[in-house]
């Protein structure tokens, strides 16, 4: 995009700066809108599965419900508990929100349409997602309250556990794609399944990894059935207990932006990102970003579906699944995948 600005007679530095700012706005603003609409979609899907109507009052079909909620939260009073550590208490939601937006910098929306086309794109995503835990942990500690603290402890253990297996799963994808660059990973999936299907999910070795990745991403974003950090039946509302007003809204937005990010990662790493699902000329008439959005929504539907139907895990079951099932399995798959690639690619 910086070339466009350069044709307007700007120097390279200014063109780069303006292009980056424009890119950030182009990603962040639609993302916020998408989060508002996806919260509405989440509630509608959940309601449909529970044979309810869901939000249907504000606007046509209740479409403006999220904006009404946002306005309500915005007008509320910000309450900081007197025993809280004020600075950290207020910084924590900002960290969660910022980190949720940061990782979108490397998600490719179309061929070459990516804000930061860096070599280590996937590692960057892993690095940023490992920061997500700080917002929760700091909130839990700074609230100086019993339930948020328990929640913070749970979050720290849970997110680290699942990041380990996510790391191994990503390594398998990287081995197949031969690159850490997100766009290259998408390109490598072109016609991967018999020259017809775009996506790694069609691969017999990678399909189980995708299933593990989907479950791990549920745990990583602390969505049901792994939402132990805000288990309302035991911990009131977890780390969000003491939060109100905009600070609470930032958690909300950050959480859903994270969920969308994980859906986008599922789409980019295993379902061919902005490529159409089948390698057919006619499907390329639909622009790439539309395919990506469709895939993101598909995965979000799965997330909502799981939330509506699966009961919450117990904490020790969660840990067992992470360390005793996913970790050995994903390690085994690293060996299997690299062995298979050695056999087929290098003889």
């Amino acid at each position: 995009m910086s070339e466009t600005f350069q044709t307007w007679g700007l120097t390279y530095e200014w063109a780069w700066f303006l292009a980056t700012v424009a890119g950030i706005l182009l990603i962040a603003l639609p993302l916020m809108l998408a989060v508002a609409m996806i919260i509405y979609a989440d509630r509608k899907i959940w309601a449909a599965m529970a044979l309810r109507k869901g939000p249907n009052v504000v606007g046509p079909f209740g479409l403006l419900q999220s904006f009404a909620d946002g306005l309500k939260v915005f007008l509320q009073e910000t309450i900081v508990p007197s025993a809280a550590n004020k600075g950290l208490f207020l910084i924590a939601p900002i960290i969660t929100f910022t980190v949720a937006l940061l990782a979108w910098a490397v998600i490719p929306f179309n061929s070459g349409a990516v804000l930061a086309d860096i070599n280590v794109g996937l590692l960057y995503v892993l690095a940023i997602s490992s920061l997500g835990v700080y917002g929760v942990v700091i909130a839990g500690w700074a609230s100086n309250s019993k339930y948020p603290f328990f929640s913070a402890m749970r979050a720290a253990a849970q997110m680290i556990s699942y990041e380990v297996s996510i790391g191994f799963i990503l390594i398998c994808v990287v081995l197949y794609a031969n690159s850490f660059n997100m766009n290259a990973i998408v390109e490598a999936q072109r016609g991967h399944g018999l020259g017809l299907v775009n996506g790694y999910w069609f691969n017999l070795l990678l399909f189980p990894l995708w299933v593990m990745f989907l479950i791990s991403s549920l745990a990583e974003t602390a969505r049901a059935p792994f939402d132990l950090t805000e288990a309302e039946s035991e911990l009131v509302a977890g780390y969000q207990t003491e939060y109100s007003s905009m600070a609470f809204a930032l958690y909300w937005l950050g959480e859903y932006a994270n969920v969308l990010l994980m859906c986008a990662l599922n789409a980019v790493l295993f379902f061919g990102g902005w490529l159409p699902p089948l390698e057919l000329e006619i499907l390329y008439w639909v622009p790439g970003w539309l395919w990506l959005f469709a895939k993101i929504f598909f995965f979000f539907f799965i997330f909502s579906w799981v939330k509506a139907t699966v009961p919450r895990y117990r904490y020790d079951q969660l840990m067992r699944l992470g360390w005793k099932v996913f970790l050995p399995l994903s390690l085994m798959f690293v060996v299997l995948v690299s062995g298979w690639l050695m056999f087929t690619r290098y003889g």
Partner: peptide, 24 residues
């Protein structure tokens, strides 16, 4: 950039979280 990402993943993402866990 590889070292930078490893620094963030290993130290910030794992070691420091455990530090924080214990110190808290």
């Amino acid at each position: 950039e590889f070292i930078a990402m490893l620094l963030v993943i290993v130290y910030v993402g794992a070691v420091a979280v455990l530090f924080l866990f214990v110190v808290m």
